[in-house]
Every structure is written in C-alpha cells, then in structure tokens.
C-alpha cells in the first residue's frame, strides 16, 4: 500500500459498506482502501505478529462483506469494523497464543510482506516493542483508524482523560525512540 496519510471519514466508509451490500462494482476495493491499513495496524498491535495480523485483515474484510447487507449505520462504521477485528484477534489468541517476535524478526517479516522503507519498519517495530498494549491501540486507532478519543476510551474501557494522557505519552515515547534509533543508525 502506498502512503496516503488520510484518516478514513465515517461517511466514506458508510457509503462503501452500503456499496458492498448492494453488490456495487468497485465498492470492495474502496472499502479496502479506506479501512485496510487501520484493521491491519490494529491487528498487528494486538497480535504483534505480521502473519496473524494479515489473517485478521483478510477475515475481517470477509466478515464485513458478509454482514454488510444487515449493517445499520450509526455513524461509527470504523468502530464497528474494529470490533469485528478485535473478536477475530481474540479468537486467534484462544486457538493458539501467538509468539511475540524479536524486533529483527518483525522487521524481516514486515519487509517480506510489503514494499516498506527501513524508516517505516523502524517506526512500526518501535510502536510494537516500546509501547504498552493500551498505548499501541490508542495510537493506531486514532492516528491510523481515525477513531475519536472518546471512542477509543470506550473501546479500552478507560476514562477519556486517561486515554488522552496515554496517547500523548505514547507519541512522546515514539518520537524519542525514533530519534534514538536514527542516531544509532547514523553512527554505524
């Protein structure tokens, strides 16, 4: 996927789901382009495993496709999709607890499954290794999936103020780690 740096808008996601439900041509592609990264980032944050996250992305989109005809918009389509992804991730944990990978192994897997740069992989690896689970989820759900902080607080079952401070602390931590990682790379 190429970088777009756009958070998906609820109205666009809603319209893509309606398109998918009615069999509209190109609707699935639109939906994938809108939510694919968000679902993958979220699944990666939970499973910390590239292949498991890829499976969850695949299964989530199939599930959304199947459920689309019965979908009723409440203005929060991304929260609905993330809930589907969460249940699939938990299903994976129940089947077999995934093994956490080393940073090197993670970097190798990310490199083999995408055309990403070293910088991209460094940031994603740091996000997975340096942040707590709540911090990772807060960051990807806001920065990638575009969920509102209050939706994330509800998802994590924590007060809004706590979520906000986790989010800001996580971004600060990431900034420092990336800076540190790049300094190290420049020295070698």
């Amino acid at each position: 996927m190429t970088a777009k740096c756009v958070k998906p808008r609820s109205a666009d996601v809603d319209s893509a789901i309606v398109g998918v439900a009615s069999g509209e041509e190109g609707a699935l592609e639109r939906l994938y382009a809108l939510v694919g990264s968000a679902v993958y980032a979220y699944a990666l944050s939970l499973t910390k495993n590239v292949y498991d996250a890829q499976d969850v992305l695949h299964d989530t989109l199939i599930k959304v496709y199947e459920s689309a005809p019965n979908y009723t918009s409440q203005g929060k389509p991304m929260a609905w999709i993330i809930t589907i992804a969460k249940n699939l991730c938990y299903g994976k944990f129940r089947q077999q607890r995934t093994v956490n990978l080393t940073e090197e192994e993670l970097d190798r897997q990310l490199g083999s499954t995408s055309n990403s740069s070293v910088e991209d992989r460094l940031l994603v690896s740091k996000c997975l290794s340096e942040l707590s689970e709540d911090e990772r989820i807060a960051v990807v759900l806001h920065a990638v999936a575009g969920l509102k902080h209050r939706e994330i607080a509800k998802h994590l079952n924590i007060p809004l103020a706590t979520e906000l401070s986790k989010y800001n602390r996580a971004l600060e931590k990431l900034k420092l780690k990336i800076q540190g990682g790049q300094d190290e790379k420049n020295r070698t």
């Binding site: 190429t2 740096c5 910088e119 991209d120 940031l123």
Partner: peptide, 8 residues
C-alpha cells in the same frame, strides 16, 4: 505513524 502503518 499513519504513513508507516499504511506502507507496511
């Protein structure tokens, strides 16, 4: 963060 997760 947004760009990197998009790219990977």
């Amino acid at each position: 963060v947004n760009e990197s997760f998009n790219n990977v």
